[in-house]
Amino acid sequence: MGAADVVPGVSGGTIAFITGIYDTLLESIRRINPKLITVIRKQGIKAALAHINLKFLLCLFSGIFLSILTLAKLVSWLLITHPIPLWSFFFGLILVSVLHILRQIKQRQITQFAGFIAGVLLAYSITILQPLHLEPTTMNILFAGAVAICAMILPGISGSFILLLIGMYAPILEAVKNFRLTPIVTFLCGCVLGLLCFSHLLSWLLKHHRDLTLVTLTGLMVGTLPKIWPWKETLTWRTNSHGELVPLLQHNLLPAEYERLTSQPSQLFLAIAMMLTAIGIVLILEKIAKKKY
Rank of each mutant, 00 (worst) to 15 (best):
L173N: 12
I172F: 12
A16H: 14
M275L: 04
K42H: 14
F179A: 08
L154K: 14
I228T: 01
H200L: 13
S97E: 01
V222E: 08
C197L: 07
P8C: 03
A151P: 09
T182Q: 14
L212W: 15
Y293R: 08
G12Y: 03
K42D: 11
I64N: 02
W231F: 03
W77P: 08
P34H: 10
G63A: 10
A273C: 14
I37Q: 05
I153A: 05
A148V: 12
V176T: 02
T186H: 10
I288V: 07
L205S: 05
D23G: 04
I272C: 00
K207Q: 12
K287H: 09
L102S: 04
E259V: 00
L165C: 06
I128A: 04
W77T: 08
Y258D: 06
L86D: 01
L95M: 09
I279A: 00
A148L: 05
R210H: 12
P171N: 09
I40Q: 15
I126E: 02
G223K: 09
R41I: 00
L164W: 15
I141D: 11
M139E: 10
I162C: 07
I94H: 00
H133P: 07
G115K: 07
L54I: 14
K290D: 07
P131A: 01
A114Y: 05
P183M: 01
C150V: 13
I272D: 00
K55Q: 15
Q264L: 14
L181S: 12
K290T: 11
A4H: 01
L196A: 04
L86W: 00
L78K: 02
G280Q: 03
L181H: 06
G119A: 01
V282C: 02
V222S: 02
T186E: 15
T186V: 11
N240W: 08
F17Q: 11
A144D: 11
L163P: 14
T24W: 04
A273S: 06
T14L: 01
